[in-house]
Design a protein around this nucleic acid. Structure first.
Lengths: 223, 223
DNA sequence: AGGCACCGTTCAGGTTGCTGTCAGATGGAC
DNA sequence: GTCCATCTGACAGCAACCTGAACGGTGCCT
């Protein structure tokens, strides 16, 4: 894979660059948004690793601009833990995953592999589940041919299920996936959102395993 | 599975304990090595999650002592990121795997599942018994092609049998695997649950050996 | 600036089903 | 036949979950 690293911290940048190379990928390293913008105009990347705090602007604005421009390259954002809601904001802006600084290089490699698996071997990340047609890259969804709109939070939850088909997800795991440490929820928010997905996608899409959590269900009659 | 968690950090301990329970296992939580030592003398665990830095000593020394004493219970060590040497030392001391703090709950669940399968004698999560198709990773079960739903407790019991095929399990052993110290049962609960499994899976799936216990049976006519 | 639509979250009350106990029935061993 | 290990149906308690509604914040439009 060809990876664009956008990170102004020289020490971290070198470590990440070296790990990417050690993993057998190629990497271009931009320390400013302007350089990143130049890079994506002249090269096709398989993945962008994007810091959120850069000397010439916010990584999120860069990402949003790329998405508006139709660029669907997978993006992993690099975010500090104490930046409230940056992770969700990043995901809302179109990021595919995130790494929380400080992260270790094993985790970096694992995330690159995971994102690569998701998109690298499958240039057209379309998923079909029952009567749902899902485009994970474009974040679009159709049910029986009709477009369904999910809010950012609904999409994040839905994606958690689709990324782990057949796996039972506890509510704590779902919460961990959807919220940062500083964003803890106090109520039955997960249940409410599961209910919302059911309302939009059908009552059997998500199966409750009482006392344990939820799992993507297969609607009756599906192959 | 019955799991012993040895962790002094209360916040992490609670999160891990709750996830273990959400995964359908039973758990005893010790915050000191001395308590862990007491626990392993009284109960048989399927897995130990072992922090390395404890208020009354090093987890590694506890592990070494257990191994010298002949205890082969699988152990996952919990180690901080900046103690890479501890990971290697842990593996050398006889640990089976490790988790690097901070770790997410998905990874915890996956590790527990992987270690549990490996030492259940069969690393393959897909098991076929008679007309039952079992996916131990996804917690799904089909009987003659039809999905069967088991409650958390039913699954835990069923899993105990599947992980020890052909082994006669006494009721006390079953109870020990299914319930932690704080969850002791008073009645004929094991019998009731065996009956529930039989109702869902067929009368011959579990064989009674009167006065001794139960064993996974092979349904008549199975290959 | 004000109004409105939308979104995320909480709240509160209703619904559901899981769990374990109990008591009587059944069946095996002697 | 007796004894007792095991099975089975029923049930109560409780907490996990669902659902409708309200509230506050945000962004957009006039």
């Amino acid at each position: 894979m060809r990876i664009l690293l956008v990170e102004d911290d020289a020490v971290l940048g070198m470590a990440v660059r070296d790990q990417i190379v050690a993993d057998g990928h190629s990497v271009d390293w931009a320390q400013r948004i302007a350089d990143a913008g130049d890079a994506v105009r002249v090269a096709a990347y398989d993945l962008v690793l994007l810091d959120l705090m850069l000397p010439d602007g916010r990584g999120l604005d860069f990402l949003k601009a790329r998405r508006v421009a139709g660029d669907v390259t997978p993006v992993i954002i690099l975010t500090a833990r104490d930046q409230i809601s940056d992770r969700i904001a990043g995901l809302n802006a179109g990021a595919d995953d995130y790494l929380v600084k400080p992260f270790d290089l094993f985790e970096l490699s694992a995330r690159i592999r995971a994102v690569g698996r998701r998109y690298g071997g499958n240039p057209n990340p379309l998923v079909r589940i029952g009567d749902l047609d899902i485009d994970l890259a474009a974040r679009t969804l159709r049910r029986a041919g009709k477009p369904v709109r999910l809010t950012a939070r609904e999409w994040a939850l839905f994606e958690a299920f689709v990324q782990r088909p057949n796996v039972l997800l506890s509510k704590a795991q779902i919460e961990e996936h959807l919220y940062s440490f500083s964003d803890e929820i106090e109520s039955n928010t997960i249940e409410v959102y599961v209910g919302r997905l059911r309302k939009k996608l059908g009552p059997d899409v998500i199966e409750t395993v009482r006392g344990l959590g939820y799992r993507l269900g297969v609607p009756v009659g599906a192959s």
